[in-house]
């Protein structure tokens, strides 16, 4: 008999600050790292520490995710640090919705929605892709997911604000009890 619990525990993360950074990462990397408080990540990776995540979005683009309370100061620090660079620093805290996936089999939820092999991503991997019909980014982090999943994996999925309800809907559908992908 199939395990009739949802495949994943899905929680919406709110109160986050987000800063879009566009710059020549090779030239301005040190300045960004200092102001952001995190090393600049490698291609398709993210760095994280103390509630701050710095993700590689594009060859000249990073996204800093941080506690909302830290936003104003960090935004100012980044703007200041990049004042002499050809750079763009923009508060995008209100632009996105964020869901965290933990529980039994969060990767299976993503495998139903994204044309991506979740298991092939490293623990600090950031993959921009789509979830069903909307653009999204997957942030994979290992941790104590709890809920009995062996890998203890936790995933963060980020999409645009306007499709929040849609994303919540497809995640819940994909995580529906009894829909495990394991062969029967």
């Amino acid at each position: 008999m199939a395990d009739m619990r949802p495949l994943a525990v899905i929680t919406e993360a709110t109160g986050l600050g987000m800063v879009l950074i566009r710059a020549d990462l090779a030239r301005a990397g040190d300045a960004i790292a200092e102001a952001a408080g995190l090393p600049v990540p490698d291609v398709t990776r993210f760095t994280a520490d103390a509630g701050r995540w710095l993700g590689w979005m594009a060859p000249d683009e990073l996204l800093l995710v941080l506690p909302g309370a830290d936003l104003t100061a960090t935004l100012a620090a980044l703007t200041d640090a990049l004042a002499t660079e050809h750079a763009l620093v923009q508060d995008v805290s209100d632009m996105r919705c964020v869901f965290d996936l933990a529980g039994r089999k969060p990767a299976q939820v993503l495998a139903k929605l994204c044309p991506v092999d979740p298991n092939a991503l490293p623990a600090d991997g950031l993959r921009r892709t789509r979830a069903a019909q909307v653009a999204c980014a997957l942030w994979r982090r290992e941790g104590s997911g709890g809920h009995g999943n062996a890998a203890g994996e936790v995933w963060r999925i980020v999409a645009f604000r306007s499709v929040r309800d849609y994303l919540a809907g497809i995640l819940a559908t994909a995580a529906a009890p009894g829909t495990d992908l394991d062969p029967r």
């Binding site: 291609v43 398709t44 594009a58 060859p59 044309p115 993959r127 921009r128 892709t129 789509r130």
Partner: peptide
């Protein structure tokens, strides 16, 4: 060639 992701056609 920028992010080295093997993307399928629906991502392009």
């Amino acid at each position: 060639p920028y992010c080295h992701v093997a993307a399928e056609e629906t991502e392009l």
